[in-house]
């Protein structure tokens, strides 16, 4: 199955990826190939097979409700490109 440029644009938008025109052309071709390849799965007979989300059959372990973290905000924010007054900055958000 071949993907259209519009489909790839929509996917790139959902994934928040800017692509150049060349990258779009290449992505359309390569993603189409990948989708073709994984389409093999449709041949498998999976009637009644339970989807497997985890490799091991285990249940979630629970953590006691205790405050354990010591927070070093300034240290963490050294990795951020734009901060002010302890806040992370982004271009103005309009709701």
């Amino acid at each position: 199955m071949s993907l259209s440029k519009e489909q790839v644009q929509h996917i790139a938008m959902l994934a928040r990826l800017e692509l150049t025109d060349d990258e779009y052309a290449e992505s359309v071709a390569k993603l189409s190939r990948i989708v073709d390849f994984v389409d093999q799965l449709s041949q498998a007979d999976t009637d009644g097979v339970i989807p497997m989300a985890h490799p091991l059959d285990a249940a979630q372990r629970l953590r006691p409700d205790v405050v354990t973290e010591r927070i070093e905000r300034d240290r963490y924010q050294e990795n951020a490109a734009a901060v002010a007054g302890g806040l992370y900055l982004v271009p103005k958000v309009i709701e």
């Binding site: 002010a84 806040l87 982004v90 271009p91 103005k92």
Partner: peptide, 11 residues
């Protein structure tokens, strides 16, 4: 959004 010119601050 208040008090920041062209930015929003994230807490």
């Amino acid at each position: 959004h208040e008090g920041l010119d062209k930015s929003s601050g994230i807490d």
